[in-house]
Design a binder for these strands. Sequence first.
DNA 1: ACTGTCAACACGAATA
DNA 2: TATTCGTGTTGACAGT
Length: 246
Amino acid sequence: MGFHGFANAEPVLELGLNSSSVAEKTTRPTKKLDLSFDHPLEPSLSLALSGDSCGGAGGGSSFSNASVKREREVASEESERGGAINTSGEDGEDDEDVSVNGRKKLRLTKAQSGLLEEAFKLHTTLSPQQKQKLARDLKLRPRQVEVWFQNRRARTKLKQTEVDCEYLKKCCNRLTDENQRLRQEVQELKIQKMTQPIYMQLPAATLTMCPSCEQIGDTNPVSTSKPFTMAPKRPLFNPFSSLSAA
DNA sequence: ACTGTCAACACGAATA
DNA sequence: TATTCGTGTTGACAGT
């Protein structure tokens, strides 16, 4: 993932174990069965047998209706198209290239990736019509186009998260520096206060100098001495102002 | 052998 | 209720 390597003082995104995911990992069937309607040339078939869920290993009942539906959709797409497309560009692929669990790694060609990227720039999500058209143009199954867009959105989000993380790290560092600087300032003021005359040890905001008589006045409302104008306050530190400027 | 990448999958949540 | 999306995961493959 993109978050490893953070130092101790840096903001940490918790990547704790998701109990459901862990459970899922242990219960979800990992072996998938090839369907008889799969085209032999299709390099990327790994369909679970929807009707076989009762006989499946472990969590056979975990297949959702949506998944079953999707598998049917893929199957119908296959039969509709009269065969699958060899997306990897390798001719003559057959069952030998399909792994034990029926999952074959395919690489989209540069042309296909390029066209998908172009489409993604225009729309990060696809309407069913756009999906169909893109699939036709790329000689891919609509499902493959759909998956590509899902993964692409996920990658975009991950990248953005990393950017945000970097930004927050910078903010954190600046705030740490500022905190240290302010602590140092407080320390110095404390020392300074110890060595000042007694009237200088009154709260700073309540004391100003009279411009005419050059006497110290007290702005404290309960005080009996005459109030003078307040000294302007120092602006608060804004860690984001400098960042946005940079 | 190890690691990163990525297509494909499973599944819950959101939505029309 | 069907469909789509986000998220986490798997497994094949390539690079080291």
